[in-house]
Design a protein around this nucleic acid. Structure first.
Lengths: 143, 143
DNA sequence: GTGTTTGCAAACGTTTTGCACAGGT
DNA sequence: ACCTGTGCAAAACGTTTGCAAACAC
């Protein structure tokens, strides 16, 4: 169950971690790859994926698997929720406190033992809000 | 904005709908394809995908984009949440009422206009609960 | 007859993997 | 020296798409 693997400290891993922590945009692996490449021009996309996986295993970063899009990564490991813009797809942090009651809340679980949840919010980001003024659309939230 | 397309009633679409509604397992496109193929041996996977998309557009089915897995489909369109088993990956309905307060709840949104959310629960299903008795594991909920 | 829908196969975007070599310890 | 980590390229995976033929209307 433990992560018993011996980790080596490589420049690739260090730069990936630095660039991820320097970003607030929750980049995808490809975006991070482009960013890291500016400092390590010979790095490969596979290395980025492998290191993100390792860092996630070791609990140093968070993996955001949001509905219907590529996986994004977050250098912040403290728990918080995210909002996603319906229009441009950007992702931002929400300072909303976690709803741990969601897990402990008594409910009919069909025999499941529930021990976690994933919650993401959808909406329009400030800049897309401005551009969509007056456009009527059916906001359909998916649960 | 409207769905103005003229739909034709094809046996493929009808059987896909029937098989989806007959299942409580929230099948993936591939699983549904295997199921439908028993009745329509010449159907193709592409047709299954296309019809699922059409049925979703027309509001006849729901698309479940759960964290870190293929898209699953639900013949029930009434809103409800889902639980996913950490061990076997199976998905079941939860009769828990929706938390619409989550959307209207006052919170610091960073300028976003929030109009929807996605919530999914994680845990162990009845049969995996039995098999993992006594195994200590760190339950890590992802938010 | 018109235009949607089908089957097939190829293409797609994201992620994973096999391999030989480089490099951290 | 050992064995993890790297770069590269190919493969895997789920999904979408182009096309000509089939079929619903």
């Amino acid at each position: 169950m433990a992560t018993n693997k011996l980790r080596r400290q490589t420049p690739q891993r260090a730069v990936i971690m630095e660039e991820l922590c320097a970003s607030k945009a929750h980049p995808t692996a490809a975006e991070l790859f482009a960013q890291v490449r500016r400092r390590l021009p010979r790095i490969s996309l596979g290395t980025v994926y492998r290191n993100l996986e390792v860092l996630h295993e070791d609990g140093q970063i968070r993996k955001l698997e949001l509905a219907g899009s590529e996986t994004r990564f977050d250098g912040t490991t403290t728990p918080h929720y995210h909002v996603r813009c319906r229009a441009c797809g950007c992702v931002r942090d929400l300072p909303t406190p976690l709803h741990d009651k969601l897990v402990t809340m008594p409910m009919e679980t069909g025999g499941f033992r529930i021990d976690g949840h994933r919650l993401e919010f959808h909406g329009l980001c400030p800049s897309c809000l401005g551009e969509t003024e007056g456009v009527s659309g059916t906001a359909h939230s998916q649960h």
